[in-house]
């Protein structure tokens, strides 16, 4: 009885650590924090996709979200407006081809007008 309780307590304590998620990429991009959201940036060719999820990696519907990505291509900043697409995806198109994992930052405007941004290095 007592031992079981102790074991349960220990399990809960370790569970506290286990909840601590690691920002894992689900779409092959890089995941960063943006305020209370997690943002995954996938840049391929000229298209930029941004996936929004909450702190527990649960996808958040992108409807109502707006965004801007500023990515550095050959030392020049490229400003890419992002529009909500299907699911938790926002997408945009750059004027020039983006290299592999370009540096930059993504700013999200939530439906209630608040902003959150994530920096990608």
């Amino acid at each position: 009885m007592i031992r079981r309780k102790l074991v349960l307590a220990a399990a809960l304590l370790t569970a506290g650590g286990a909840i601590a998620h690691e920002a894992k990429s689900q779409h092959g991009g890089r995941v960063m924090d943006a305020g209370k959201y997690h943002v995954e940036l996938v840049a391929k060719g000229e298209s930029v996709d941004v996936f929004v999820s909450d702190g527990d990696q649960k996808p958040i519907p992108a409807a109502g979200f707006k965004g801007t990505a500023i990515l550095l291509v050959d030392g020049k900043p490229a400003r890419i407006p992002l529009q909500a697409a299907d699911g938790n995806r926002l997408s945009g198109k750059a004027a020039v081809a983006l290299g592999d994992s370009p540096k930059g930052a993504v700013q999200l405007t939530t439906p209630d007008g608040a902003t959150a941004s994530a920096k990608f290095n």
């Binding site: 309780k5 924090d33 209370k36």
Partner: peptide
Amino acid sequence: SRFAAALGAMLLAAGLLAAPARAHEGHDH
């Protein structure tokens, strides 16, 4: 046994309270 039970309860409470604080590793929202 009662004393141990009380201890267990305390640990339980500690575990519950500690969980949200440690929820994020390295970064917090």
